Amino acid sequence: MEKIEKVLASGDTHATVNRDPNVKPGALDLKLSGPGVESMEFLAADLHPRAEQLFSGAWAGCYITNFGRVAAMKKVTLPSDYSVDIDVSIGSAGGGYCLGAEFTVRVPGLATEVVEELAQLTHQNCPYSKAVHGNIEISMNIVTV
């Protein structure tokens, strides 16, 4: 596995469970940040996010769904405000390019060891995590406060 030597671009996401009964399944609302811009909102007519942002968004949605399933399977009750941030970076390595990802899993009120176990089990179940396993560098931050 190659490690990024120099980050060229990065896309990060923040995912939460949507409990709004008025939102239709499949609704797309992208609020992204970009270089030199604090935040921007992309509407269906003007979608131009970077690939890293799209990949991190898709991965975060898949990962947080599987995190909830793994927690239920382990009979762990999650707080309503748990979340996952994924920052996907593309960078140079040797003569080519590679990806890296940094996860921040926030589960207020649970023991760090419990969240770490859930996070690792989720990586074993999430299709995106399985697809990149052993191919990119992934770091994990656990926040329980």
Rank of each mutant, 00 (worst) to 15 (best):
D81R: 06
S33A: 14
V145H: 09
L118K: 13
E117L: 03
H14C: 08
T112A: 13
F42Y: 08
Y63S: 11
G36M: 01
L28D: 00
P21K: 06
G34N: 02
N141Q: 13
V114Y: 01
S33F: 11
D87C: 04
K130E: 05
N22T: 15
A27L: 15
E5S: 13
S92M: 12
A44H: 11
V132G: 02
T77A: 15
L54S: 08
V17P: 00
L54M: 13
A72D: 12
F67I: 11
G95T: 14
N18K: 13
K130A: 09
V76K: 12
S89E: 11
L121V: 06
N66L: 04
G61L: 04
E116C: 06
V105M: 00
E113I: 00
V7T: 13
D87S: 12
E41P: 08
L78N: 05
F103M: 12
I136W: 00
T144M: 01
R106P: 00
P49E: 10
P49G: 14
V107G: 03
K130L: 14
S83V: 03
N135E: 09
A15M: 11
E38G: 07
T112I: 08
C62S: 10
D20P: 09
D81Q: 11
V105E: 09
T104N: 10
C62V: 13
T104A: 00
Q124P: 00
T104Q: 13
S56T: 12
N141W: 06
K74M: 15
L30W: 07
A58V: 13
L43F: 02
R19A: 07
M40N: 14
L8I: 15
V115P: 14
A71L: 00
W59N: 05
K74T: 14
V88H: 00
V23H: 02
P127V: 09
F67S: 01
V132Y: 05
C126I: 10
W59A: 04
L110K: 14
D81H: 07
A111W: 08
V7E: 01
Q124M: 05
G100P: 07
S92C: 04
E52S: 09
A111P: 02
F103R: 11
L78V: 10
E2D: 00
S83M: 09
T104W: 11
A131R: 00
I64H: 08
